[in-house]
């Protein structure tokens, strides 16, 4: 097999960043193949958000190179911004506007044709049609997150950054966001997401990169990462449902 790997949608090499004395990124290397979901896993303060901010042209790196969709983040920021969408740690939606107005706003700023139709389609796709005419300040956290994601999809950017997309969400809302992310990737969008929930990475990502002490410690598929540890021992244990299984089963029954 000599198939050449396709050019990476995101290519990061030797990325460095310090905040005063704090050396956050000490040479990060990362490749994200097009159309895949890669999870950047790390504890609080590991620098996940810093990586995302550099890749989305919000922050300049001190050293190293990074390209997104083939464009250099330092020298071609405008081209990068045309190719990406960023969903930050907090749902960056306008609370004074209605959900539909938020979508129309982004659609007009992205200069897409017929912003109204785009907004209505996205409201339907994220099951927000009913709430679409209400001000976002009255919405639940899960609905805001879905709106936030929907706003990120306008203009079909080939690369989407999701910075801790499910932080602060209840289990149902998290499952909804996961479904939306999977739908995105199946349509060919490259997704780089950060998370501190191991389970989220396990559930969503094609590849997982662990960021620790300013470097990528390991980078591979879940199976590859599991193979790093000694082979599994076979033990017989009683399968207890987790609290999450119980919670989801009970609440979905009554939904």
């Amino acid at each position: 097999m000599t198939t050449k790997p396709p050019p990476a949608a995101i290519h990061v090499e030797g990325l460095q960043k310090s905040f005063q004395a704090l050396h956050v990124l000490r040479g990060v290397d990362l490749d994200v193949p097009p159309g895949s979901i890669v999870a950047l896993l790390g504890s609080n303060g590991a620098g996940k958000t810093t990586v995302i901010r550099i890749l989305s042209t919000l922050l300049a790196a001190d050293g190293g190179t990074a390209t997104v969709a083939g464009y250099d983040v330092a020298t071609q920021p405008a081209d990068v911004r045309r190719s990406i969408s960023l969903t930050g740690q907090f749902a960056a939606v306008d609370e004074v506007l209605t959900g539909r107005e938020n979508l129309v706003l982004v659609a007009r700023l992205r200069h897409v044709g017929s912003p109204g139709t785009v907004a209505d389609d996205l409201l339907r796709r994220f099951s927000l049609t009913e709430a679409g005419g209400r001000r976002v300040s009255t919405w639940s956290g899960g609905m805001r997150r879905r709106l936030d994601l929907a706003m990120s999809l306008i203009g079909d950017p080939p690369v989407v950054f999701l910075d801790e997309p499910t932080t602060g969400l209840d289990p149902q809302a998290r499952v909804e966001v996961w479904a939306a992310v999977q739908q995105l990737a199946s349509a060919g969008t490259t997704v780089l997401l950060t998370t501190q929930h191991l389970e989220e990475a396990e559930h969503l990502a094609d590849r997982i990169a662990i960021l620790h002490e300013g470097r990528i410690l390991v980078d591979g598929t879940l199976a590859e990462l599991k193979a790093l540890l000694p082979p599994a021992q076979v033990e017989y244990v009683e399968k207890q449902p987790t609290l999450e299984d119980v919670f989801l089963a009970l609440t979905q029954e009554h939904a």
């Binding site: 042209t57 045309r82 960023l86 930050g88 960056a92 939606v93 306008d94 982004v106 700023l109 706003m151």
Partner: peptide, 13 residues
Amino acid sequence: QSGIFERFQSMPI
């Protein structure tokens, strides 16, 4: 504070 500023900054505007 709400992050919408960064959203605008990361958009092609």
